[in-house]
Nucleic acid binder design. Structure first.
Length: 224
DNA sequence: AGTTGGATGGTCT
DNA sequence: GACCATCCAACTG
């Protein structure tokens, strides 16, 4: 699926803009992505075909597909393929460009929401305070590192599924940015898909900007 | 610095 | 009832 990789590469360096009433716009530069294909791709959510959950992946390109993973983290995808053929690019990490304080507030809200679900009492609340404090003092460049963390920082959840990300007036907008030097782009296997049948567990469809401090996970480049 | 296990809920078999 | 496109804290060395 060469087309999916091209689409993924074209998203590197693009800006993700989150507009919310009453607060400064949040802007992140996309520095890490993964390409996912259709039913043939055994690591893709589309492997089970066109279901209620995955229907957006089979829809028109440029729209959002947001899913919940491990019961807690929302993850943002950009649908890339032609209408009718499932494909999507998972946005795995952004480098904060503007609105860092609002991103931190978004991450803190996520933690608070989670804590509010827990039963009353116990040592949980003290631990939550420590977590909030630790998160607040984290270096800013890691606030959007990882698909779950970037969604928390940008207040993105499943309700964003189906949104047109190229609608300039929408709450979440993709804006073209300076493309990274092709020599700085590295490819590795996708993260967390070890369960998939070969070769889908190993295809190097994760793209990242080498050396960028906001990139997640293993930095070891695949030379190919 | 690297590894391990728990949290947690929707989706699919 | 099993399986996750994750994250963090608490371990080991």
């Amino acid at each position: 699926m060469r087309g999916g990789l091209d689409a993924a590469e074209s998203l590197l360096g693009a800006f993700l803009v989150r507009r919310m009433p009453g607060v400064i716009d949040r802007v992140g530069r996309i520095v890490e992505v993964e390409a996912y294909g259709g039913p043939e791709d055994r690591a893709s959510h589309a492997r089970a075909g066109n279901t209620v959950r995955t229907a957006p992946m089979f829809g028109p390109p440029g729209h959002a597909y947001v899913y919940l993973v491990y019961g807690m983290h929302d993850c943002l995808n950009v649908v890339t393929g032609p209408d009718g053929a499932a494909s999507a690019v998972l946005i795995r990490a952004v480098e904060p460009v503007a609105g860092l304080d609002v991103m931190r507030a978004g991450a803190a809200r996520w933690v608070a929401r989670r804590a509010a679900r827990q039963p009353e009492g116990a040592a949980g609340s003290a631990a939550t305070g420590d977590t909030l404090s630790a998160r607040h003092h984290q270096p800013g460049h890691r606030i959007g590192t990882g698909p779950g963390r970037l969604c928390a920082a940008f207040d993105i959840d499943r309700s964003f599924t189906g949104m047109d990300l190229f609608d300039a007036d929408g709450p979440l907008v993709l804006v073209a940015g300076m493309r990274p030097d092709p020599a700085s782009i590295r490819r590795t296997p996708r993260i967390g898909v070890g369960h998939a049948a070969p070769p889908w567990d190993a295809v190097a469809w994760r793209l990242l900007i080498a050396g960028n401090p906001s990139v997640s996970g293993p930095r070891a480049p695949i030379t190919d």
